[in-house]
Design a protein around this nucleic acid. Sequence first.
DNA 1: TTGTATGCGTTATCAG
DNA 2: CTGATAACGCATACAA
Lengths: 333, 333
Amino acid sequence: MPTIKEVSELAGVSLATVSRVMNGSDRVRAETKARVKAAMEELGYTPNSAAQSLAGNRSNTLGMVVSWLDGPFYGPVMSGVEEELRRHNRHVIIGAGHGDIDQEREVINYLRARKVDGLILLTEGLHEEDLLALSKELPIYLINQHFEKLEDRNMWLDNEYGGYAATRYLIEQGHEQIVCAAGQKYKQDARERVAGYKRAMKEAGLTYSAKHICHTVFDLQGGLTAMRSFDEERLDFTAVFAGSDEMAIGALEWARAKGLSVPKDLSVIGFDNQLMAQYVSPKLTTIDFPAFDMAKACARSAIQEIYHKQKASGLKFTPSLVIRDSVAPPPSR
Amino acid sequence: MPTIKEVSELAGVSLATVSRVMNGSDRVRAETKARVKAAMEELGYTPNSAAQSLAGNRSNTLGMVVSWLDGPFYGPVMSGVEEELRRHNRHVIIGAGHGDIDQEREVINYLRARKVDGLILLTEGLHEEDLLALSKELPIYLINQHFEKLEDRNMWLDNEYGGYAATRYLIEQGHEQIVCAAGQKYKQDARERVAGYKRAMKEAGLTYSAKHICHTVFDLQGGLTAMRSFDEERLDFTAVFAGSDEMAIGALEWARAKGLSVPKDLSVIGFDNQLMAQYVSPKLTTIDFPAFDMAKACARSAIQEIYHKQKASGLKFTPSLVIRDSVAPPPSR
DNA sequence: TTGTATGCGTTATCAG
DNA sequence: CTGATAACGCATACAA
């Protein structure tokens, strides 16, 4: 493995000069730079990242904390971050918090010990105080969590608009009685999606009661629970807006058990556009969550700020409707 | 951030001694060791991994190459590896090959430049020559790829047995006419699963022709294609063994389109026990692929060999049957 | 614009 | 069993 020393000898310059051309060519003559680059090329030089980290007092590594490594949602996010960082010759250490706040903290400590230069967080447990304290120590970037005090290190989805778009689509199809199966009430995104539902309903002059909105959990079981609740309340409805695809699949299951055909008797729209949305029957109409793009943008922004001293800026992403087979006009009476 | 220097001063010993107690206490007096440990504790010392890498000429990092970061299959694998490595204070850099052999090679080069101490591979493109050449350079560990020349760095699934168990279960339910929707013929695991099917059929004295086995692709579309082929061949069958859950879901879709009810009219068994197997309707009876455990075992073995000079040893994993709702006795005639 | 010298925090090789 | 001390490969003041 060649080192800068060998490169410098071949190029007939000093170590320092080689180092300079590596780190964004401060002020070195173009000709010298070319000679050095040629030498690097010839030797097949690759920098030793450990030495860089040690001397430069930074690890060229970002830490990333997700709740699960194996959830359908996190794959695209990790993928986006990894891809972007590798393009910039940096890398990422990923840790899983397993949905537990203590484990999340532990992972963060681990990453700190690894001296990561920044942190990308896609978590649920950490609250504002935690985040604020952390951010005093090193730059942290938030995916899917809108936190005003960290505004320019935020990549967030306009969940409200997503909920609006979903509901709006149902309304356009002719539905007037629409229920909303929502996720955990303490979750920001769950609440925002519900807000979108409400806005669309009001805007269309449709009515809903508190019973039309059922906060349960963002999973299949939660979807079932919500549907049962609507049923027990004897509500009339022709369509359901589910806060997540998994909940929507729960709704499909409920409908099947009830002998209702989707979308003929009941329309269902989900949220997230997870992989499995395409695998169920009927294929789920849903709202796309651009996780991959958000992750990429986040990584790019982090790199710019941390390594190139440019100001970071947050970005709001707008989700889009994905039309498949689970929504149709309501049954005519 | 405290360094060993500060620790050594507090403990009243030399740098070298501190270093010794860190690295598995070669020969240092118990009392000294205790003093040093106390000092480390008191200062909250954590080793600087960059310095360790530089001085020790190793990165304490393993590279891992998977085909996709976002496939349902890879999550549990990454999860297992990450968890095990972190427990041992090592880490992993994950790269994705995107199912393309050139990209896989590129990722491997990237990881080599990062000076990983070993490589965990869960790939498809690389062939034996590649692997053999690579393994001359650094230790490589294979998940889900049985390669005799690297026998003790192999974690592999007994796919043949899995295919046998799946088919056997169908037979026990009373099926006699069973077709097999298999994955890509060039894939080792696809072929092995088929071999298991054949063994079970023969053992039970049941017959099958070449037409009963259809090699397509390990995905939903492949499942559809295979089913159509059986249909066009006008085969009689009451059950299908699909080489993957995705193919099985394709079979479900085909049955639905045909107006067949699963499992009443047709039984379907899958393979892999991916997350989505629980989300489709009917819930898929399938063969569990213990990806998480395999990954953990692989990481453990790698750590033992690379960092503790113990001989690695491969492991064969036996898949198990997961009974859900997609298999029933054949319709009585 | 370029070169020299020093230090980053460890490990490893020697002596003692 | 323990202590000096020289690497490890690079970044960065400081000098030239």
